[in-house]
C-alpha cells in the first residue's frame, strides 16, 4: 500500500487493539465513512485506550476523551459551541462509546442528548461486555452469556437477563435515524453512517462487534461470528428513519443458521452447550431469534 494512502487513514494503523478486534474494524469503517470533517467525542473504553497511548494517537481527526459516562454530553457541548461560533457547517459531531458506556453508565447522557435534539451521530460499538476492564456484564450482554460478573457456576447459567433493546429505546426518544449494523458487513456500516449524517438532528447507530478475548473466540473468527449472529436472527440489521422502518437486511434461507451454530463458536456460551439443562436454555435463545425473524420479517427464499 502506498505510504500516502496509509497516512491518509483517518484511524491509523499501529493502535494497540487485540489481534482480530471487531471494534477496531468497525471504528475504522465508521471514521472512513464519516470523512475528515468530524469532531469525535469518545467515552472511556477499549477504543479510547487502544487508540491513544500517550504520546501517540491513532486519530487523524479532532478527538476528545474525558470520561466513561459522558460522551453524549461532551458531544452536545461541542455541537452547541460550533453553532454559537457559527461554524456548524465545518464539522459533524460524532459521539462514540462501547455498550457499557452507552447502555449503562452513559444512558442518562445519551437520553438527554436524544431528547434535546442535538445534531449528533451517536455510535455504540456493542461488544456485549465491558471489554476494557476485563469482560464484566453490561446491559447489552445477551441471555446466558458467561462474563466475569455474571459467571456460569454450579448454581448459575451466566447472565440471566436479556439484552437491553437500545435501538428501540432510541426510537422512542424520537431519534431521527436509528440503525443497527454488524462488523460482518463493513459496507453496510459505511452506507448507514453516510445516510445518518444526511439528517440534521440526533442519530443512533449500534454496531455489533465481537470481542476476541471477551467472547472466547479465535482472532480469525471475528467476522464469521458476527455474520452468524446476523444469520441466526439474534442480531437483526435494520434502519428506522423518523420512526419508520425503511430497511431490513434479509437472511436467505440457505444462509440461515440455528442459534446453536452461533453459540458454539464462543467460549462464553460453552456452559450451556454441554449439559441437558443447557438445551432448554438454547431453546430460549432460539425463541429470541425466532421472534426477531417474525417481527422484522428477516427470512426470505433464495433468489
Amino acid at each position: 500500500m502506498a505510504v500516502e494512502e496509509v497516512e491518509s487513514r483517518l484511524l491509523a494503523y499501529g493502535h494497540t487493539a487485540c489481534a482480530g478486534c471487531g471494534e477496531a474494524l468497525a471504528a475504522r469503517t465508521v471514521t472512513e465513512a464519516a470523512g475528515p470533517d468530524v469532531i469525535i467525542a469518545n467515552a472511556t473504553g477499549c477504543l479510547e485506550v487502544f487508540t491513544t497511548r500517550f504520546p501517540r494517537s491513532a486519530w487523524r481527526v479532532p478527538w476528545i476523551h474525558s470520561l466513561f459516562e459522558n460522551a453524549a454530553s461532551v458531544a452536545s457541548g461541542i455541537e452547541v459551541a460550533l453553532k454559537a461560533l457559527g461554524r456548524e457547517k465545518e464539522a459533524k459531531v460524532i459521539a462514540q462509546a462501547g455498550d457499557g458506556g452507552t447502555a449503562d453508565i452513559g444512558m442518562g447522557a445519551l437520553s438527554g442528548m436524544l431528547e434535546r435534539g442535538h445534531d449528533i451521530l451517536y455510535i455504540c460499538y456493542d461488544t456485549e461486555v465491558y471489554s476494557n476492564t476485563g469482560f464484566q456484564r453490561s446491559g447489552l450482554t445477551p441471555l446466558y452469556a458467561h462474563t466475569t460478573t455474571s459467571p456460569s457456576g454450579s448454581v448459575s447459567y451466566g447472565n440471566l437477563t436479556r439484552k437491553k433493546d437500545l435501538p428501540a429505546i432510541a426510537v422512542d426518544h424520537g431519534a431521527l435515524y436509528v440503525a443497527t449494523a454488524s462488523v460482518a458487513y463493513p459496507q453496510d456500516i459505511s452506507r448507514k453512517v453516510k445516510r445518518a449524517l444526511t439528517f440534521t438532528g440526533p442519530k443512533y447507530i449500534q454496531i455489533h462487534c465481537p470481542c476476541v478475548p471477551g467472547w472466547g473466540i479465535e482472532s480469525h473468527m471475528t467476522i464469521r461470528v458476527a455474520r452468524a449472529a446476523v444469520n441466526c436472527g439474534l442480531m437483526p440489521l435494520y434502519e428506522i428513519e423518523e420512526g419508520n422502518m425503511v430497511s431490513v437486511r434479509k437472511i436467505k434461507k440457505d444462509e440461515h443458521v440455528k442459534v446453536d451454530q452461533y453459540l458454539m463458536l464462543q467460549k462464553r456460551f460453552s456452559h450451556i452447550l454441554k449439559d441437558s439443562k443447557g438445551k432448554d436454555l438454547i431453546k430460549e435463545i432460539q425463541a429470541i431469534a425466532d421472534a426477531n425473524i417474525e417481527k422484522f420479517g428477516l427470512l426470505i427464499n433464495n433468489e
Partner: peptide, 13 residues
C-alpha cells in the same frame, strides 16, 4: 426522565 433515567433504565434491565 432526566437525572434519574439511567438508574431507572438499569433497574428495569
Amino acid at each position: 426522565a432526566d437525572i434519574g433515567l439511567q438508574a431507572l433504565s438499569g433497574a428495569f434491565e
